[in-house]
Design a protein around this nucleic acid. Structure first.
Length: 732
RNA sequence: GGACCCGUAGCUCAGCGGUAGAGCGUUCGGUUCACAUCCGAAAGGCCAGAGGUUCGAGACCUCUCGGGUCCACCA
């Protein structure tokens, strides 16, 4: 063994060794306990960042379970990441002086497909560099044919159960990007805007002043609304207001919703352009078609010189006009939040658009039950409350996206009746009228809709290598891996996507499979820099995991993400810490080297050994026994931590023990007798060290395997070994 | 407005009812003898503040102050 552990000589070779010899490949073994984790699929098109490196927790669990003798599957896949990827591709097009409008739908889709496929390998190799024990033989992509089919089937099932509906709802629409966004994708921007006070004349005499930040939308108003308890306005409720400049008549209505303290206490109601107004108007049975179109231009306002004018410009024109005619009372500055497009920064326009929605009420009810009853257990515990709150507040899910890069919604509109039907297979004839040419919805699914099905969609599509004969009937195909590994054991992901992903997997997963998609959820924290700031390119504090791996080795980077952290807490990562962990890896290596040197020595001095044996040093025997006892305690604690999902604690424990107790104390104390060939001392040190290698292996797989091979047949792996003391120390 | 997390050594963080800890940094002393990517030693803390529970509180409870995150609302 070399003086220093040089990870560069080992990492790639060892990973290839593992992969080629099938150590990552899951089989179906009914005699073993299955343990399965589905890797949250990274964006196929993007490089990994430090957040992805946090999936090391999954590797820790997988490798631990392998050493426990369980049959493990860590399933790897890639996400098409709809909006994100299309955005990246469009930037790429822009560099070439083109845009998405230069292509038809099909060509654009195919181009993005090729673009993604070219880049996909990067991400996969980066996962390998991290040492992840992923089963590459079963890798999946969210746009694989069989996955798409599953997604279609789920949608059909939801549709058949009456949980899918089409509704004219307000969506956050970006008039520049030409697409709508989910609430989750909206970026809030705090600005100082204006509050405009406008006088509306009342037909019966007098006037009422309303305050608004969006004066141009008054042309789409359906009512003026006041609080029924507001004494100032009691007498105008039920009267008729004449909208300035156009003289359209609208009623004054009353609703608790109005806050009397805000503005003047009187509010204009514009159902087509404001989410709250939309809801209130619906309650009162009021509606008026939009006065802003999907390109951001005014329409149907009743004012010829305003129609077809861009909305920002229209606002100025209208204000000038209102002022000119004496309707504008005053303008005051006002702190407000703009909903903006995360892609281009344009202020999003709430616009009514027909979309597909999923009624989540029954789904979330069941999901809440599952979480509350611990059918799905959340680690760390504090996230349980948070998840329940998230589920309780879940509103109906808009799954339509107006982009090309995604799974096209399998919904078809009859040209004759305008009714819709949903079909998993490409229909040959209209299922409504039977003869028309029907048109498929142009929209694609929200990426999270396919992600929500990932656990069962992937497992169902895993082929059993032994029984390739498959039933052609799609609903009745054999799904041995699904049967064996589902529900999966643990879903491990960042706490930031509890809402977007975890909650939806539970809802959809249960709906489709009638069981939980995973038994445990383990959430990791965010990676931050030395100062506790989020890493971002603009701050220039981004640590590239691959650079660090190149410099310090994968084991060091992995260990640095875990060492000294609290479960679910954010991780502060610095180069210093990675360096410290590299030193620890070297320490592991050198303990092995010490043992190796002394083993060969003691075997060459066999004659001396027996002499040594007849003259026992009581001190050393005492130390050997002390070590044995102390290590038994460490083993017990280690396995308890794993049982409690306290992976960082288990690692901290090993770090402290291996370095500061085992190496610094015991080896130093027993050094003399080891070097003079004491068999007892050598054996005990080797036994403990062997077990330590196994216990460290989930965290630092490379160095432990490299050392392991130094003591064993080179064709074997530490991954074949099993914890020896497990029966004594833990109960399953 | 609702919820959650965090204030512990110079810095970044562990500690979850019983003698204040780690990594990095600092100071001093050590390399033929596994490792200088090392070893030994040292300095450095009213554990944010105030009450309370307890024989005993960084730890549990209440409040205050300070930092962060998520959600809701914003005419």
């Amino acid at each position: 063994m070399d003086k220093i552990y040089s990870f560069r000589h080992y990492e790639e070779t060892l990973y290839t060794f593992w992969e080629d010899n099938g150590y990552f490949t899951a089989k179906i073994d009914p005699s073993k306990k299955p343990f399965c984790i589905i890797l949250p699929p990274p964006n196929a098109n993007a490089d990994l960042h430090l957040g992805h490196a946090m999936y090391v927790y999954e590797d820790v669990m997988i490798r631990y379970n392998k050493l426990m003798g369980n049959e493990t599957l860590w399933l790897v896949g890639a996400d098409h990441a709809g909006i994100e990827t299309q955005f990246v591709y469009e930037k790429y097009l822009k560099k070439q002086g083109k845009s998405r409008f230069d292509f038809d739908r099909k060509t654009l889709f195919n181009n993005i497909w090729e673009f993604v496929m070219e880049n996909r390998g990067n991400m996969e190799n980066q996962l390998r560099k991290l040492g992840f024990a992923l089963d590459w033989s079963k890798k999946k992509f969210t746009m694989d044919e069989d996955i798409v089919k599953t997604v279609y089937l789920t949608f059909k099932h939801l549709y058949d159960d009456g949980l899918v509906y089409r509704a004219n709802r307000l969506v956050n629409y970006c008039t520049s990007c030409g697409t709508s966004f989910s609430d989750l994708e909206v970026v809030d921007k705090e600005v100082v805007g204006n509050l405009y006070y406008i006088q509306f004349p009342i037909q019966e005499g007098g006037s009422v002043t309303i305050a608004t930040t969006r004066p141009e939308t008054y042309l789409g108003d359906v009512a003026v609304m006041v609080n029924p308890k507001d004494k100032r306005y009691q007498k105008i409720i039920g009267k008729t207001v004449l909208l300035p400049l156009i003289n359209r008549e609208i009623p004054v209505i009353a609703d608790e919703y109005v806050d009397p303290k805000f503005g003047t206490g009187a509010v204009k109601v514009t159902p087509a352009h404001d989410e709250n107004d939309f809801q209130v108007a619906q309650k009162h049975g009021l509606w008026k078609d939009p006065v802003i179109d999907f390109n951001g231009h005014m329409q149907n306002t009743g004012l010829d010189d305003i129609d077809r004018v861009y909305v920002v410009k229209a606002r100025k024109l209208i204000i000038t006009k209102l002022e000119e005619y004496g309707f504008l009372e005053k303008i005051t500055p006002h702190d407000m939040v703009l909903h903006t497009c995360y892609r281009c920064g344009t202020t999003l326009e709430p616009l009514p658009k027909e979309q597909w929605f999923i009624n989540v009420k029954p789904l979330k009810k069941k999901a809440i039950q599952l979480v509350k009853k611990d059918e799905i257990r959340i680690h760390p515990k504090r996230f349980k409350k948070q998840l329940i709150a998230i589920l309780e507040n879940f509103i109906d899910w808009n799954v339509s996206r107006q982009i090309v890069w995604g799974i096209q919604i399998p919904a078809y509109r009859c040209e004759k009746t305008n009714d819709w039907f949903v079909s998993v297979e490409q229909p040959t004839s209209c299922q409504i009228c039977g003869k028309c040419k029907f048109i498929q919805d142009k929209d694609t699914f929200d990426t999270w809709f396919s992600s929500a099905q990932w656990p069962y969609a992937t497992l169902q599509s895993c082929k059993n290598p032994k029984s390739e004969i498959r039933n052609p009937k799609s609903d009745d195909k054999p799904t041995p891996f699904f049967d064996y590994f589902y529900p999966t054991s643990v879903m491990e992901t960042g706490y930031d996507i509890l809402r977007a992903w975890v909650s939806r997997m539970i809802m959809i997963g249960y709906f489709e499979t009638k069981t939980v998609p995973f038994q445990h959820v383990f959430l990791h924290g965010m990676v931050r820099d030395k100062k506790g700031q989020k890493m971002s390119k603009s701050k220039g504090n981004v640590i590239n995991p691959l650079d660090m791996i190149k410099q310090y080795g994968a084991d060091a980077v992995r260990a640095a993400l875990i060492f000294g952290t609290k479960e679910g807490g954010d991780v502060v990562l610095s180069e210093d810490k990675i360096l410290a962990m590299r030193n620890f890896c070297n320490k592991i290596w050198n303990i092995g080297r010490f043992i190796e040197i002394n083993q060969s020595q003691s075997s060459s001095h066999k004659s001396q050994v027996s002499i040594q044996k007849t003259s026992p040093k009581f001190q050393n025997i005492k130390n050997i026994e002390k070590l044995r006892k102390e290590f038994a305690g460490i083993e017990k604690k280690y396995h308890t931590h794993f049982k409690n999902f306290e992976f960082a604690k288990a690692f901290d424990l090993m770090y402290e023990f291996v370095w500061h107790r085992f190496a610094d104390y015991y080896i130093e104390e027993l050094k003399d007798s080891v070097q003079s060939g004491s068999i007892e001392a050598c054996q005990e040190i080797f036994t403990v060290f062997r077990a330590c290698l196994q216990m460290l292996h989930p965290y630092t797989p490379f160095v432990t395997e490299a050392v392991w091979k130094a003591f064993h047949d080179k064709t074997t792996s530490i991954m074949q070994s099993r914890f020896e003391h497990t029966n004594k120390t833990i109960r399953s």
